[in-house]
Design a protein around this nucleic acid. Structure first.
Lengths: 366, 366
DNA sequence: TCATCCAATGTTTACGTAAACAGGAGCGAC
DNA sequence: GTCGCTCCTGTTTACGTAAACATTGGATGA
C-alpha cells in the first residue's frame, strides 16, 4: 500500500499544465511543499520508480526511448534526487569531512582550497569542521560530531599531534588521511617535503658563502615547524657548520618582527632561514628598522611562497610549496580508501622548489 | 588502522541471547559491518526503539530510570545516530552550504572561518561548494549541486553579481543569505559597511591636509570594489575636491605593484586609498622602489586590516573589517530563515573602523 | 465507584532510494 | 519447436529514524 493510488498528474501529461500539484494530495492550506520524488517522475513518465532510479544513476540497461521519456519527466517536474534517502540506502554520502584548527595560516587555507576543488571534480562535497580549541577534548569533540555527520572519509589538517587514537571513535567505514603530522604509523599521511624544502633553503644560503644560517622557527607544537628545524640542523651538520641558537615565532608576521628585533642585534647573523613567509615579512621589517639592509647585510629565505611574497621589501626568496598537489593527493587518498583499497599507513611527500628573488645575496668578504 | 565502531559487547548483556544477530540475516563472511541502530540499542536496553529515539532527541517524557538504561546501552554499543535516516525523516540536515569563488582573498577566508565557527556553535555543519569558473554556468552548476546536496540553507559569498535568479532553482525550503552583492532586493544580504569604511579612509587623508585622494580600486566585477570606489568619489565630492583618475587592480599584491609604478610617477599624488591591504602592499613596494617615501611623500590607507598589515613597510593605516561579525550575522540570518521566520530581503551592514599606523602623515606645505 | 485524564511507553507507518529478485520478450542453437 | 540466454523493466523490500496514533496503569475528581 503506497500512498494514494490515484494519479492526478495524468491530466497534466498532455496539457502541459504546470506540474505544481505533484504529490501534495490534500488541497493546501499549510503548503506542505514536499519535494518531487522518483514516484512522481515515474507516474508522469509511465514507468516504475526503479526505472527512474536507473536513469538517475546512469545505469546502462535502460533503452534510449524510455530514458528519454524519464529525463523529460524529470525536467518537467524539476526533480532532484534526495541525498538523504540516497545516502540512507547506499551508505555513501559523497562527502568528505575536513577537520582543521584554523584558517589563519596560509598553508591550511591553500590546502583546504585545493581539497575543495579536487573533491568537487570527483563529485564529492566538503564538510568543514573547525576545532575551536586545540586540545585533546576539542579534537575529540570535533571527531565525534564528524562521526555523526554525513561523511565517507575525513581529512585532518593539523599542526599539532593531538590525534590520540584512543579517544577517537569513528564509524567503521570512515577513512582518514592526515596532513602535517607524525601519525604516519597509524594513518595515511600526505605532506609537503618539509625536509627537502628546508635543505634547499639552507643549501642556497651556504652556497652564497654564508658561514652559517640562523633559523626563525615556527611554534614548537607544529610538526611542520619541528621538521623544518630538524632539517635545518641536519643540513648545517652535514657541512660541519655550527648551528646558532634557534629563534622561535608562532607563524605570525608579528612574532617574526619580535624575533627579528633580536636577530638584528647580532652582528654575526648574515643569513636567516624563516620557517614561513609571514614570519619572514615581520623579520624583514625588523631588520629594516634596525638599519640592516636586506640582502646586502642579511640574506633571508622564507617558506611557503605565498602570493604576496613577491611584493615584500625586498621580494622574498622562498621555498615553494605545492599546496594544490597536496590537496589533490589527500582527496585521491581518501577516495581510494573509500573505494575499498587498502591504503597502507605511511607518508606521501610532495616536493618543493626554491624560488629565488631579491632577499638573498652572496656573503660579503670578511 | 583500527577504529571499528562495531561492538562485541553482546557478552555484557548478562541475560540471554546475544543481540549480535541484529537484522543481518546472513551470517557473516564478508563482515557486513553495519552500524549500530536504534533497534540494537532498544533490544539491549529492553525498550522500544521509539523510546531510544526519544532519549536521543532529549524528549522530556521518558522517566529517569529508563533514560539511564538507554544511555548506558548506547554507550556500550557505541551507538551513533544515522544522520541520513534522521535527515530523511525530518527533512532537516543541520547543515549550511557555503558557495564561493575563491579562497585567495583574505576577506572570503576570514568570512568563511567566522561562518564555520559560528555555525558550529549552533550545531550546524558547513558544506563548502567552490565555484571553479566564475560564470553564469559555473554558478548555476554550483547551485544545482548544492540543491541536491544535504543543506538547509545557503550562504553565498560572491563578489560578482552572477546571481541571475532565473537560472537558479533551489529546493523550495532552502534559504539564502548573500554576502557582498547588490542582490538586496531579492535576498537577504549581510555585508561590511563599505561606504562608511571608504569615507573613513578618505576623510582621514583629507583631514591630514592632502588636497585630494587617489584611489587604487579593486576589479570592476566586484561590488565591494564598486562601492568603495563610489564612496571615495562621494567623499571627495562632498568636500568639493576633484577626483583623480582611478587606477585599477585585481586585489592582488602584484596588481597593486603595477598600479603603484604608475602612481609613483605622478608628482601630484600624495595620498592614496587602496581598496584592500594586499594591493596596498604592492603599492608600498612600488613607491619604495621609485624613491617615494611613505608616509613623508605619499600617504597610503588600505582596507581590510589583515593581520600582516601591521608588519608592512611601513605598518599600514587601514580600515578594519569585522569579518567575525559578518560571519555571525550570516549564520544568524540563515538559521532564522530556516526557523521559519520571514526575513525580508535587505541589507545588514557591519560597521568598520580606521586603524591608524605609520603609512599616513600630514601633507607637506607646498 | 467509575469516568477521565495524564504520563510513559509501545506499535505502525512513511520518508525516498536502490539492491535483489522476478518476469517477459526476443533470438540463436540444436 | 523449444531450450536457454540476454536485455529491459517491474515488484518487493530494507535502510534508520521519528511523527502519529495506540495502549497501559495509575492518580484525580465527581
Amino acid at each position: 500500500m503506497i500512498r494514494e493510488g490515484q494519479a492526478p498528474p495524468a491530466a497534466a501529461v498532455g496539457s502541459g499544465a504546470p506540474p505544481a500539484g505533484t504529490a501534495t494530495g490534500e488541497a493546501g492550506q499549510a503548503r506542505p511543499r514536499r519535494g518531487v520524488s522518483m514516484a512522481d517522475v515515474a507516474r508522469l513518465a509511465g514507468v516504475s520508480s526503479q526505472t527512474v532510479s536507473r536513469v538517475s544513476n546512469g545505469h546502462p540497461s535502460v533503452v534510449a526511448g524510455t530514458r528519454e521519456r524519464v529525463l523529460r519527466a524529470m525536467k518537467q517536474l524539476g526533480y532532484r534526487p534526495n541525498s538523504a534517502a540516497r545516502a540512507l540506502r547506499s551508505g555513501r554520502f559523497r562527502t568528505i569531512g575536513v577537520i582543521l584548527f584554523t584558517l589563519s595560516t596560509t598553508g591550511n587555507v591553500r590546502t583546504l582550497e585545493a581539497i575543495a576543488v579536487s573533491a568537487a571534480e570527483k563529485g564529492y562535497a566538503i564538510t568543514l569542521q573547525p576545532v575551536a580549541v586545540p586540545t585533546q577534548t576539542g579534537v575529540h569533540g570535533a571527531f565525534t560530531r564528524l562521526g555523526e555527520l554525513a561523511v565517507d572519509g575525513i581529512i585532518v589538517i593539523m599542526e599539532v599531534n593531538l590525534l590520540d587514537a584512543a579517544t577517537i571513535t569513528l564509524p567503521p567505514h570512515v577513512q582518514v588521511v592526515v596532513v602535517d603530522s607524525d601519525a604516519g604509523d597509524r594513518y595515511s599521511v600526505v605532506d609537503t617535503d618539509q625536509v627537502g624544502g628546508a635543505h634547499l633553503a639552507v643549501r642556497h644560503l651556504l652556497d652564497l658563502g654564508h658561514s652559517t644560517v640562523w633559523h626563525l622557527a615556527g611554534p614548537e607544537g607544529s610538526f611542520a615547524a619541528q621538521r623544518r628545524e630538524q632539517a635545518w640542523r641536519d643540513a648545517l651538520a652535514r657541512d660541519w657548520r655550527a648551528a646558532p641558537p634557534v629563534v622561535r615565532g608562532d607563524w605570525s608576521a608579528e612574532s617574526g618582527y619580535r624575533a627579528g628585533l633580536e636577530l638584528a642585534g647580532r652582528e654575526d647573523c648574515t643569513a636567516v632561514f624563516a620557517a614561513n613567509d609571514q614570519m619572514a615579512l615581520g623579520l624583514l621589517r625588523a631588520l629594516r628598522e634596525r638599519g640592516r639592509r636586506v640582502p646586502q647585510d642579511v640574506s633571508v629565505v622564507g617558506f611557503d611562497d605565498i602570493p604576496e611574497a613577491a611584493s615584500f621589501a625586498p621580494p622574498l626568496t622562498t621555498v615553494h610549496q605545492d599546496f594544490a598537489e597536496v590537496g589533490r593527493r589527500c582527496v585521491d587518498g581518501v577516495l581510494r580508501e573509500i573505494g575499498g583499497a587498502e591504503v597502507p599507513p605511511g607518508a606521501v611527500l610532495v616536493p618543493t622548489r626554491l624560488v629565488e628573488r631579491s632577499s638573498t645575496a652572496p656573503a660579503r668578504r670578511r
